[in-house]
């Protein structure tokens, strides 16, 4: 039997999640020993539709061409793993879905909008194909990704982290920025994975790791309003990096008026 193989694909994204590989240093070289990297454009390997064991997908699906590509990726991969907020939940660019702004924005920006073949919505990969495992985070961190490779290749389902950032703060003995400084922290509804980075830096979490399991967004919304946030501010908190994730989308839309207006 040959080495297991992987591919890294890019869709609509900032390239930040693939850096989990390219920033891995020595571990990248070790990984290249363990597995056969068949496709990874930024690393210089191109064979887009080679059959692989794991296809990592970065980015959301936002053009007609991407729709075709993702279906072909599914067809030639044993496991499909989404890398980060864009691929898992649509990412920041899914904000264009809110008011159906795609066409308007395209015309505002391009002299030749006819050449820009975008879909009306920017959507997560799972809106179009079956996804075997989702990694959250904007960006994902290297540990998550390398752990996923190890676990999938040894046949064990990767560990899911569904706890809240709040729990991580307690573990790290970080003082609560909501209680001590009145900051509008989303830690109570956000999944861990970052090690409570923002609270440890004295700032509020903005939920880049997406919604935790059983996130009580209604209670947090009331709490945020109690801290003096306007309805538009509350909407902006939820409708940010993971705006298209169902629980955030729903919580945000309760307070949302077109264009985040306050009246």
């Amino acid at each position: 039997m040959g080495k297991p193989s992987i591919a890294v694909h890019k869709f609509s994204s900032c390239d930040g999640c693939q850096l989990a590989f390219l920033n891995a240093g020595e571990e990248l070289l070790n990984l290249a020993e363990l597995v056969d990297i068949k496709h990874f454009l930024e690393a210089g390997v191109a064979d887009e539709y080679a059959h692989v064991d794991i296809a990592f997908v970065e980015g959301s699906i936002s053009t007609t061409d991407e729709l075709t590509r993702i279906q072909r990726v599914r067809a030639c991969s044993r496991y499909v793993v989404t890398l980060g907020a864009c691929a898992t939940a649509g990412g920041l660019q899914a904000l264009r879905n809110l008011d159906g702004s795609n066409t308007e924005w395209k015309h505002a920006i391009y002299a030749h909008p006819g050449f820009i073949h975008t879909l009306d919505q920017a959507e997560p990969v799972s809106a179009h194909i079956k996804v075997d495992f989702e990694l959250w985070g904007c960006p994902v961190n290297g540990r998550q990704v390398l752990a996923a490779v190890q676990q999938l290749l040894f046949g064990v389902a990767p560990l899911e982290q569904r706890d809240k950032v709040c729990m991580e703060c307690k573990r790290q003995h970080a003082s609560c920025v909501m209680v001590t400084a009145g900051r509008p922290c989303l830690g109570p509804v956000t999944r861990t994975g970052c090690g409570a980075l923002c609270p440890r830096f004295g700032r509020d979490c903005y939920a880049c790791f997406g919604p935790a399991g059983n996130a009580n967004t209604a209670a947090l919304s009331r709490r945020l309003e109690g801290l003096g946030l306007t309805p538009a501010d509350v909407a902006r908190r939820f409708l940010f990096i993971n705006n298209h994730a169902p629980s955030f989308n729903e919580a945000g839309k309760k307070h949302y008026r077109q264009g985040f207006s306050d009246d």
Binding site: F11, G16, Q18, S62, L92, R96, I116, R236, G259
Partner: peptide
């Protein structure tokens, strides 16, 4: 042929303290 992500458009209506976390996502590098 990188798909457009319309950052300048969705900065409109955001508060000043949200801008840095928004524009960072233009480029991971």
């Amino acid at each position: 042929f990188e798909p457009p992500r319309y950052f300048e458009k969705f900065l409109e209506g955001r508060r000043h303290h949200e801008v840095l976390d928004t524009v960072a996502r233009i480029c991971g590098i």
